[in-house]
């Protein structure tokens, strides 16, 4: 016959693991980012976040972990950890398109940095959000 303590620890472990798996709801999001720098001044910065309609497959790159205070909205979490997430996007790699024109010795330049729409695996928890790019 099992002891009461043994049964208690088993059910506790089961409950904790169940809660943990429920709290970690992995989702997939499409994220794109773009901004324009014209004559050293930034314009039209945009970060697009949306849930995927089709499942993304494959392995993921090294994830980034953002702090979360119980929010389920990824956009909200990203806006609270703006600098960290922007650095992560820059590390992933951006497309650069630069055009410069010098007309009668007067110079003007336009640089466009773009992260083309990419699929990210997102695990949102009450305390953190884990974001990783699919390979």
């Amino acid at each position: 016959m099992r002891s009461r303590d043994g049964n208690y620890s088993f059910s506790l472990r089961l409950l904790v693991s169940l809660l943990f798996t429920l709290s970690l709801n992995a989702q997939e999001y499409l994220i794109s980012y773009r901004y324009v720098v014209k004559d050293a001044i930034i314009y039209n910065e945009s970060l697009q976040v949306s849930k995927t309609m089709k499942k993304c497959n494959g392995d993921t790159y090294q994830p980034i972990i953002l702090e979360n205070n119980g929010s389920k909205n990824l956009k909200e979490i990203i806006s609270k950890n703006d600098e960290l997430f922007r650095n992560y996007i820059h590390k992933i790699g951006l497309n650069i398109k630069h055009n410069e024109i010098t007309n009668n010795l007067q110079n003007s330049s336009t640089t466009i940095l773009t992260l083309k729409t990419k699929c990210f695996k997102v695990d949102i928890n009450d305390n953190f959000a884990k974001i990783a790019l699919f390979k």
Partner: peptide
């Protein structure tokens, strides 16, 4: 009129 156009397109990681 004197015009110089420069351009570059790349991917930096």
């Amino acid at each position: 009129r004197s015009t110089i156009r420069t351009s570059v397109q790349a991917m930096v990681k």
